[in-house]
Write a protein that binds this DNA or RNA. Structure first.
Lengths: 333, 333
DNA sequence: TTTATTTACGAAAACGATGTAGTTCAATTT
DNA sequence: AAATTGAACTACATCGTTTTCGTAAATAAA
């Protein structure tokens, strides 16, 4: 079969490969009528430039990677959607990788990217990541990373975050104002700055209202769904049950709901729950869930925007900066 | 800066580029100790093979595209996750594209893929797609497509579907058995085979129970959220209100819930709702939602498996076949 | 008319890895 | 001793573009 490349086009038109290449990219070096002839022929033959050849030549892949811990979390989905909206505008392609909150997988993915496959990376750290060498290595290789939400503080680059501390504070205060005095905080991972900041906000709010911090109320949950279920069940099953739960992430709130359903604990009468979440169904839950809703779509969009800003400039050394987009406390039942 | 490529490695080791290349891929042409030296040096220098060079040479990108209509639908998310699990196993990369249910965007994306950027495509059609030329063109260019869920019947390839007709029938029968006599069907698009089949199942069930089909109860909804809200509100606001709703897709059920909340219509007392959905929160909704749950993860996995089966064989002409994975009716309130 | 400049194009060298077709040298066979 | 074999390695063309440099012809300036 006839190959559909520049050479074939050039032969058909009786001009050189360079002429065709230049004409296609609208170089002024080529005359108007020649350009027109080339364009017409390319259209007629359905010519599409081979991306890999160009990438090889120019070291520009027009591709970015988006790396997230999991897909079953609306925050990340919305963030990707935001990033995608910008990428589509800029004619960039998006490679999606999921770490499943596994540090080793994260490292392995990073290794796959150490070769120019992508021009840049948008990412949210895995919950089990404590060492940042694999990330710094990538930056060293001139592949910039922009973090969103689950950021690596120690890495010098742009980070798109929400006001976790303030939101954690507000969430806790909301519970307190609604009568809670014994609030449990469900933590997902001590490695994550978002978790720590939210926890700090929680502690600060308790302090403000002179409620004693009870370390036993700071519950370490994790990635494993079964473990979380058991842990939360243990929390809610004794006689000494808290009257409020602040879940650091959506999943933990849903698990709490499920546990309450199982134990026939009435929400919000016996216990009140609040969490960080981007559930579209939060309003329709039984009862509706009060959430700190992160501007996920905006954060994804912003992250992509920042990344592209530097890629356009052909700069890969993104200066350290924190971009904060505020979350919103949506009061429900 | 020193480039990190085969040439550099070869120079450092005092051997030829070919030797390094062959050693790295474990060719028996190269002696044991040389191979070892090469491997050690590659490790030491953190050498990663440049994917684009290889792709250019071999026309194999080790990349597939996953094309979906939207992200805010758990079915697609789970399907991608399924596909990703297989791709990661096979060391393939995944490019994600979203059509936003827009035919033109779908065509534009297909054009971007007509050049070997990907080895194959997994896709679910946009709701507005009626013409399949852009898809057949891709297959013609030896880039195979495997469809899942929203398939193109007229295209000869593998299609992963669920038992839409039977499930539509069962869903409707479930409503009838629970006392509904006037059931509305919320359709998303007449272009989609899933919609038509579900509708056929709905009609068949009504027939079985000698319930007259009322064309006014087949409600055409669409992609636009506001339009859907208004349409469903009009349906539920009059005096002649149905006692059951069968939503063809998740989004329409959620909108129905929202409308009922607004109009203070009690579910399931005044109206019963059932839908195709993969909501994790279905159980926690107020009241919990009875769903036809599609095996989304399995479907994504299966689609990827079929695609890779042919890619491994270096065959791009995937014979026509329908693979049906059954959905499950999960009864709730 | 001669010289300088511009216009429009072509030749060829990259980009990095791969694989074919040698080449060398030593070991083995005749 | 000559011929054959084989192991271990190298040179080089190739994939499809892009881009730099060159050059011929046409035009403008001297």
């Amino acid at each position: 079969m006839q190959k559909n490349n520049l050479k074939t086009l050039a032969n058909k038109l009786g001009v050189s490969v360079s002429t065709v290449s230049k004409a296609l990219r609208g170089s002024h070096e080529i005359g108007c009528d020649t350009t027109k002839r080339v364009l017409e022929m390319a259209e007629k033959m359905g010519y599409r430039t081979n991306p890999y050849a160009g990438h090889l030549r120019n070291h520009i892949s027009k591709t970015i990677a988006v790396i997230i811990p999991e897909m079953t979390n609306n925050f990340f989905i919305q963030a990707i959607t935001g990033a995608e909206s910008i990428a589509q505008e800029k004619n960039y392609h998006i490679l999606v990788y999921i770490t499943h909150d596994d540090y080793n997988k994260e490292v392995s993915i990073m290794k796959h990217l150490q070769n120019g496959r992508v021009d840049g990376v948008l990412m949210s750290l895995s919950a089990s990541t404590q060492n940042y060498d694999h990330l710094n290595k990538l930056i060293e290789l001139n592949i910039p990373i922009v973090f969103f939400d689950r950021i690596g503080h120690e890495i010098e680059t742009a980070k798109i975050i929400t006001d976790d501390f303030a939101s954690g504070f507000n969430a806790t205060e909301h519970l307190i104002k609604n009568g809670c005095r014994d609030i449990a905080y469900l933590s997902v991972s001590e490695n994550l700055s978002i978790d720590n900041k939210r926890k700090q906000g929680y502690i600060e709010a308790l302090n403000k209202y002179d409620i004693k911090i009870n370390p036993a109320r700071i519950i370490k949950c994790g990635v494993d769904e079964n473990y979380n279920y058991k842990t939360i069940k243990r929390l809610l099953n004794g006689k000494n049950v808290p009257d409020g739960i602040f879940a650091s992430i959506e999943k933990l709130a849903l698990t709490s709901y499920a546990v309450c359903n199982g134990l026939k604990i009435k929400i919000p009468d016996q216990i009140k729950i609040i969490c960080f979440s981007n559930l579209i169904t939060a309003d329709l839950l039984n009862p509706s869930l009060t959430t700190i809703t992160q501007p996920a779509f905006e954060m994804g969009k912003q992250a992509a925007t920042v990344l592209f800003k530097y890629l356009d400039k052909k700069r890969t050394d993104i200066p350290n900066q924190n971009i904060v987009i505020k979350s919103e406390l949506i009061k429900r039942n």
